[in-house]
């Protein structure tokens, strides 16, 4: 059925567009290249520090953020964050650099946990691929230091390390840094809903707390 339908739909489209279905537009590439992309030259926030903007936007969307002076300070910053939140050791995504982690803590590897075990860990620690100041977003791609998609979904607390060199001003600047084929998640603040009277409520099914450590590097 689906093969017939495939031919039928493709024929209908070609007929509606007034062409032969076999001539599936070699002209597409040329015409695509002509689309105006004037928005790329916009740089509204050039006069502001994108670091300050990122922190401000994270706060606006109910995420927490701590600035960390150097990568060498990360272990202490992670330990302090967990202590302040009275959290036991979270799981850690595979590929997170050993030198980020505080000494003497036994961080379970997220890769070794089932979904039910993930539901019981107090949190998850990851890095990211790129972060976007204007929208307060972090972008995770499946793999090194960022875990699988379920790792940053099931635990209730997500601690994410963002290096300042990973921070860009706007959405279009983030795309060249992404590998298009990898599973990708844009995360902007903790899970939320506005389905009840358009009030943004923090925390439905994803992590109810997102804490970003922004590291000067």
């Amino acid at each position: 059925m689906t093969d017939d339908s495939r031919a039928r739909i493709l024929n209908r489209i070609a007929a509606a567009l007034g062409r032969d279905s076999s001539a599936a537009s070699s002209a597409a590439a040329a015409s695509y290249a002509q689309i105006a992309r004037d928005y790329r030259s916009a740089n509204a926030n050039s006069d502001r520090s994108i670091r300050d903007l990122f922190v401000e936007r994270l706060h606006e969307y109910d995420a927490a953020c701590t600035r960390v002076a150097t990568p060498a300070d990360l272990p202490a910053a992670i330990a302090a964050t967990l202590a302040a939140r009275r959290l036991a050791t979270p799981a850690v995504a595979s590929g997170v650099p050993r030198e980020w982690l505080p000494e003497g803590c036994d961080f379970p590897a997220a890769d070794s946990l089932s979904v039910h075990e993930l539901d019981r860990v107090p949190g998850i620690l990851t890095g990211c691929t790129v972060a976007i100041a204007e929208t307060g977003s972090i972008v995770l791609q499946s793999g090194s230091g960022q875990g699988l998609r379920r790792h940053t979904l099931i635990p209730d607390f997500h601690l994410c390390v963002v290096l300042e060199s990973q921070l860009v001003a706007s959405v279009p600047l983030a795309f060249p840094r992404l590998v298009p084929d990898l599973p990708t998640t844009f995360i902007s603040g903790p899970s939320a809903t506005a389905d009840i009277e358009m009030t943004r409520i923090r925390g439905v099914h994803g992590p109810r707390t997102l804490h970003v450590l922004l590291v000067a590097d």
Binding site: Y61, V171, P183, T185, S188, G189, A194
Partner: peptide, 27 residues
Amino acid sequence: LQTLPRSATGERMNPYNSIWSGTPGND
């Protein structure tokens, strides 16, 4: 991803966007 969230819910970005291709291994 700029125009949809701003138009739909008045957010600069909605909390989650997922993008994937096919069956990406164990993820």
